[in-house]
Nucleic acid binder design. Sequence first.
RNA 1: GCCGGGAUGGCGGAACUGGUAGACGCGCCGGAUUCAAAAUCCGGUUUCCGAGAGGAAGUGGGGGUUCGAUUCCCCCUCCCGGCACCA
Length: 815
Amino acid sequence: MSTPYKPESIEAQAQRYWQEARSFEVGEAPGKQKFYCLTMFPYPSGKLHMGHVRVFTISDVIARYQRMQGMHVLQPMGWDAFGMPAENAAIKHGVPPAEWTYRNIGEMRAQMDRLGYGYDWSREVTTCRPEYYRWEQWLFTKMFEKGLVYRKNSVVNWDPVDQTVLANEQVIDGRGWRSDALVERREIPQWFMKITAYADELLDELDRMPGWPDSVKTMQRNWIGRSEGVELSFNVAGEDEPLTVYTTRPDTLMGVTYMAVAAEHPLAAKAAETSPDVRAFIEECLQTDASEATLETMEKKGMPLGISAIHPLTGDEVPLWVANFVLMSYGTGAVMAVPGHDERDWDFARKHDIEIRQVIAPADGTHIDIGEGAYIDKGVLVNSGEYDGMDFDTAFNAIANHFEKTGRGSRAVNYRLRDWGVSRQRYWGAPIPIIYCDDCDAVPVPEEDLPVVLPEDVKVTGAGSPLKDMPGFVATTCPKCGKDARRETDTFDTFVESSWYFARYACPDADAMLDERAAYWTPVDQYTGGIEHAILHLLYSRFFQRVMRDEGLTEVSEPFTNLLTQGMVLKDGAKMSKNKGNVVDPQELIAQYGADTVRLFMMFAAPPEQSLEWSDEGVQGSYRFMKRFWYAVMDHVDAGKAAAPDPGALSGDQKALRRKTHQTIAKIGDDIGRRNSFNTAIAAAMELLNAVNRFDDDSEQGRAVVHEALEAVVLMLSPMTPHICHALWNVLGHDSAVVDQPWPAVDESALELDTIELVVQVNGKLRGRVSVPADAGREDIEAVAIADENVQRFVDGKEIRKVIVVPGRLVNIVV
RNA sequence: GCCGGGAUGGCGGAACUGGUAGACGCGCCGGAUUCAAAAUCCGGUUUCCGAGAGGAAGUGGGGGUUCGAUUCCCCCUCCCGGCACCA
C-alpha cells in the first residue's frame, strides 16, 4: 500500500526545510544575474483574501521558475501599513490604529508562510515605522528645496456635520457616509508635488517600455494627456484683468458664442454681489462632491453672469456664464465654448438657447447640419473671415501667430495630468515634515530633526485629526528663527509610501534613503499587481523613481521593467466582499485541502490577467489532481528502480511517451517563461500525467521513460505546487531539494517525427485528414490530400482553382 | 460622461503570428468496484439531422476584408476596472 497523500504534514516539512536552509534569503552577488520579483505589497487589513492569494501565488511561481532558470532571485514582502481602515477600526472598536495594524501584520505573515511563499523576510518593510517614513519625509524636504513641492488651495469633500474631510469613497450619493449630510466642496491649502515637471519624460519613456502591457501604457498616456494648443486672452467689459482660456481648437475661435467660468471664479463672485440668483447658483454648485466622475455625469447647469467678454478677433460681445462643470482647480477656471464643434457646448447651448455657429465644414464638401449636432472633426474653416478655406494646421498656425504678434496669447502645451496633492487631513499617515512660523512661513524640518514621529497612543473619534488636539505634537519652535511655531498636522497620501518601497527592500536597514545595494537589485524585473493600480500607483512610482534619481540616490529611471496586471477574484460573477456575503476564506481551504491545492487552483482556473471565477468544485478537482499525481509517483517508485532511457532502444509507444515528455518541457517552459500562461502550463502537465497513467509497460525501457516523465512533471510543477514536489523529488530517489534544481532540458532529438497528420479543407471546410511523411514535398501532399475518399466527394467533377498548403498544418483545396 | 479591458459548450477556460473551434479541468450521463455509500478507475459529453458513414449550424449582435476570421476592420449591446482622498 502506498503512503497516503497528507498535505498538512508534507507541507509543514517542506516549509521547515526552506526555513532551516534559509532558501529564500539572498545577498548581493555581483557575479550572478539577478532577478527581482515583486508583488504589490498588501494593506494589512486583517486576513489574507483570495485576491492576495492569487497575486502572491503568481509572483511566487515566477520567482521559483526564474530560480530554476539559474537566476539569483529576490522576492521580498512588506506592508503598506498606513491608511483609512485602521482609523475606521479604531473608531469602531476603540483599538489604536498602530496596535490594530501590527496585529494584522502578524496574522497575515503567518498565513503567507502557510501558503509556502518564498519570501526573503530579512528584508521586510513596514511603512508605518519611523525608520521607513523618515526617508520620504527627508525626500520631501529635498523636493521643497528644489521647488518640487508647493502649497496651494485645493478642493476637498467637506462633511458639515462631522466637521471633517471625507475621502471620495466616503461620499455616497453626495452624502457623508456616517452623518448622511450633504457634502460640500471646500477649498483648503494643501501640499503638492510637481509631477507635471516630469510629464514629458513620463510620457515619452512609455514608448520604450516593451515589458508593460499596451493597455496600461495607453491609460497612462491618456492620463498624462499632453495636448498642444493656444492660450488666449479675452478682455472683459468693465474689467482690467483679461480672462485667459486654453484651447486645442483655435481654428474654431470664430464659433465662440459664450464663455463659462467656475463657481469659485472671481468674476462669478463679483456677479454674485449684485445678483441673488447667481449667489444661489454658486452655492448650489458647491453642494456636490469633488470627484471627476460626479462632475462628468451630473446635469450640466449654468447661469448667465450679466457680464460680457470681448471676442479678440471680431470685438463682438460674448456672454459670460457660470457653470457647474468648469472647475477652478483645472486650468484657468474658465473655458471658451464653441457649440457648433463641441458636444458638451452644443448640449449646453441648445438647453439655454445660445447661438450655435458653424465655422468648420467637412474637407470633402459633405453638407452637415449643425442644428442636428456638433461637428467635432477637423475640417475646413468657414464663416471665419480671413481664415476661410484654411485647414486645421494652417488655421492653427495663422491664429496662433496672430495672437503671438499682438501679445494676446501664445502657443502652449497643456497636460491633463495635475500635480499630486499629497496632504491628507488624517491621523494614520506619515506626518508632513513642515513647521509653520508666523515670520518665516512654512519651513521644512531640518534633516537632523527627522523623522517627525507620529504619536501612536491616541484616541480616534472620526471628527478631524487627533493630531490637532495634541499640543505635544503641534507645539514646536521655528528651525529658522527659533520662535514658537506649529507643526503641520496633515499627513501624507499613502501613495507616497508605496511610491518607493520597492527600492527600499534592497536596503531596508540603510542609514540613508537608499544605498549601493539598491544599485544591484533595482529596477524590479517582474512586478505583479492589480490592474486597478494601472494609473495612480504606477505613475507616482515612476515619478518618485525619477525624483530619487535626480537626488543622486540611483541611476535607474524606470522602476519596473516588466509588469503583469492580474484580474480580480470573483464569486457568482461579483467581487468577493463582506457586503455581498460571497467571501471564501483561504484559511479554511488550506486546512481542508492544503496550500498546494489552493495554489494550483488559483493558477489553473484562469489566465492571470483575466478575472477568476471562484468554484468550490474546481478546488476539489485540483485536489483530485494532487492525489493522482502523488499516487502515480508512489506506485512507480514502489515497483522498483528505473534506469535512464536509451533513445536507441525504444519501441514506438515508448518513443511517443518520451516525445510527449519533451514536448511538454518545451511548452511549459514557454508558457511560464514567455507567456505568463500558467493555466495552460498546468493543463500540459496534466496531459503528460494522463499519458503516463495510460501507459502500461513494465519493461526496463518502459519504466525508464515513465521515470523521466514523472521527474519532469515534479520539476515543472514545483513552482506552482512546491510542497508536494519537494516531497516527491525525494521519493524519486534524490537527496537534493527540488527548490535548488535547474529547469529540465529539452532533448531536441526526442521531438522528431516520421509522419505528420494534415487537415484537408475544401473551400475552407474540414473534409478529411491525411498522414504524410514529415519530409513530403508539396506535390506529394497535394496528391494525397486530393485522393482522400471524403475529399473526393466534394472535389469530384469540379474544377480545382487553387491549392493552399500550410506546411505542417493543412491543405485547402479551392474548387 | 471619459479612458482601458472583456464576452467562446451546462460552468471555468484552450486555440500563441489569419489555418483542425472547444485542449485541460469542473459538472452531468453510463459502466466497473462496493452489502451500501464515499473515494477511486474506465467510457461518453457544443447543438441539430442521421442507425452509421457523414452532413448542417456555431465563438455577445449586425456588417466587411480573405481561399480561410474566436483572431483583422467598421457599427452596436451588455459586463468589469480607473477617473486624481479606497488601497
